[in-house]
Computed example of a mutant assay.
Amino acid sequence: MALKRPTGDALAGTVADATGHAFRDQRLLETALTHSSAVKAASNNERLEFLGDRVLGLVVAEMLFRLFPDAREGEIAPRFNALVDARTCSEIGVEMGLEGLVRADAALKARSRGSGGNYLADAVEALIAAVYLDGGLDAARSFVLRYWEPRSSLVVAKPRNPKSELQEWIARISDARPQYTIEGREGPDHEPVFTVSVTVAGFMPSFGSGGSRRAAEESAATAFLRREGVWTEEGNPA
């Protein structure tokens, strides 16, 4: 049986332990932890997410500027992009234990359990904004640095682009071009799942799924490259 979600002072205390900030305005905190999918919610965290994304970007850019004084823009930009990526925010949401604190559709939470999900990334950004509004930039900076600074020293490589690599590989062996087709779309509007096929003349089609058309296309291209032995399972050249 799932533990009951804390509210009021209990929620504020749990969040204070995780963020280092004690909220004065508990209604602001509740809004930050309410996803748009939550049933019968009077408000949700979409506006706070918008603000939190900008606060996060400022603090992370400032942090990288300070930590890597000799790095060129081209060196720190990929690191910045990786640190503010939704996947990083989602991982931090799991680390903070937000899965049990966010109000969201039960089916949405069940699908993402243990692996984060966009709703957790949204909540992390909204929580950053809430800390900023409740305690100011110094409070928000302290919260962000607690979780993002330890990650800043990780080696960040530019992500491989499976669609580009598939097109380049095909171009070396034929005149064909990869064709992507949406095969299906499931799930609610706030958490869709697309299924896409990629076909190339002379090859069997490959399929992939993702939370956006682009993600599904990249998944299908990755499956194609792995099947044909161009990539290993880790995504490296064979």
Rank of each mutant, 00 (worst) to 15 (best):
F23I: 05
H190S: 00
Y147E: 06
W148C: 05
A176K: 09
R213N: 06
T199D: 03
S36R: 13
L98G: 08
K4I: 11
T199N: 03
A71H: 12
L145S: 00
D138N: 12
E218Q: 14
T88W: 02
E228Q: 08
R185A: 14
V15H: 01
R214I: 06
G208V: 04
R103V: 00
N45L: 09
A221Q: 06
D189R: 09
V15D: 00
E228L: 01
A82Y: 08
S209W: 11
G184P: 12
Y147S: 01
L108H: 02
T181F: 12
G57T: 12
R103F: 04
L120C: 07
R177L: 15
A238R: 09
F203L: 13
L145T: 10
R141F: 04
A216P: 04
G117N: 11
Q179A: 12
R72D: 15
A139F: 09
A38H: 11
A171V: 10
A221N: 04
A16E: 05
E218I: 06
R226E: 10
R72A: 15
P188M: 13
G235T: 11
F80M: 12
V60P: 02
L58K: 06
V55Y: 01
P205F: 07
D25V: 06
V230M: 08
Y132P: 09
E218A: 07
V55W: 00
A216M: 13
R160T: 15
R146T: 11
T195N: 05
F224M: 05
R151Q: 03
L120F: 06
Q26H: 14
A220D: 13
E218W: 08
E49C: 03
E149I: 08
L58M: 10
I128S: 04
F194M: 09
A61F: 02
C89W: 00
R213H: 03
H35M: 13
A157K: 10
A16K: 03
K158M: 13
F80K: 02
A16D: 00
G116H: 02
G20I: 08
R226D: 08
F65H: 15
A123E: 04
R27H: 03
P188V: 14
W231G: 02
